[in-house]
């Protein structure tokens, strides 16, 4: 693990279009040091696009995304080694066992002392007792946990987790968030997208996206205070209405990225 001050995420004027659809419309963001950052917003608000731009999987139409000071499109092996990614999809090999999957990604990242790294990752997601089961035999929750183990096996200090808790029961979700806090306390940045707004409480700061724009970026406490509500869901709805009022008051160009138009790639 490197010095906390070295880890950072910086996004400036990030814009990404898919044909006629604007998925991200001028996003600015700055994160430095260990933190759990939630990315919340309705379907099609640009959560996944933001994460993929930060990973260098998507090229920005305009603006820039940087991790640790390096533009995502210019990542070399050194930068990639420090980043962990859990995609929204299942993203594990169904015909391999849990352990084989995690070991495969450990090998891909050139992890030293692979056996114990795989042991640690499996213990982290509490799957040691099912390590020899094939993915095809597992429940959805266990598959998600295997996928998380694959994302952390190389001990990354910047983690991108795209809807990691989808389809999990409340107990499992709670234990996953405990895991994210553990990583943060060890000095990592975890960027976690979610559309369960209640979960955003678990984050140090929450980035609310809407139609590809930053609606707000603040701590959960401040959101509640600002909107005078007592849960994140209500806070988000209040912010949405606030945004609506501003939109009707001015800005004629706000038609871009309307989630109801669909087509935004997830």
């Amino acid at each position: 693990m490197v010095e906390a001050s070295e880890i950072s995420i910086a996004v400036e004027g990030l814009r990404r279009e898919f044909g006629p659809v604007t998925a991200l419309d001028g996003v600015d963001l700055s994160i430095a040091g260990p933190e759990i950052v939630g990315v919340a917003g309705p379907n099609g608000s640009g959560k996944t696009t933001l994460i993929k731009c930060l990973l260098g999987l998507l090229a920005p139409t305009a603006g820039e995304a940087r991790v640790g000071g390096t533009p995502s499109r210019a990542f070399g092996a050194d930068e990639r080694e420090r980043i962990g990614y859990m995609p929204q999809h299942e993203a594990v090999y169904r015909d391999l066992t849990v352990r084989e999957n995690v070991a495969f990604f450990a090998r891909l990242y050139g992890v030293e002392d692979r056996e114990s790294a795989v042991d640690r990752a499996l213990a982290f997601v509490d799957l040691r007792d099912r390590e020899d089961a094939r993915i095809g035999q597992l429940s959805g929750g266990m598959i998600r946990r295997t996928s998380l183990a694959c994302a952390v096996v190389h001990d990354p200090d910047v983690l991108f987790l795209d809807e990691p808790t989808v389809g999990l029961d409340p107990e499992l979700r709670a234990s996953m968030w405990d895991g994210f806090r553990e990583r943060r306390d060890d000095g990592a940045i975890a960027m976690v997208s979610t559309h369960y707004l209640g979960e955003a409480r678990n984050c140090d700061r929450v980035l609310f996206l809407r139609g590809g724009r930053v609606l707000a970026f603040d701590t959960p406490e401040r959101f509640l205070e600002r909107t005078g509500t007592d849960d994140m869901e209500a806070a988000f709805l209040a912010l949405l209405h606030e945004g609506d009022r501003e939109a009707t008051a001015g800005s004629p160009e706000s038609r871009t990225g309307d989630p109801s138009r669909g087509g935004v790639r997830q």
């Binding site: 990639r80 891909l108 990242y109």
Partner: peptide, 15 residues
């Protein structure tokens, strides 16, 4: 590609 494993491999430090 469709399972998402390629994306994972693409972000790994592999040329």
């Amino acid at each position: 590609r469709t399972a998402g494993t390629l994306e994972r491999v693409l972000v790994a430090p592999v040329s």
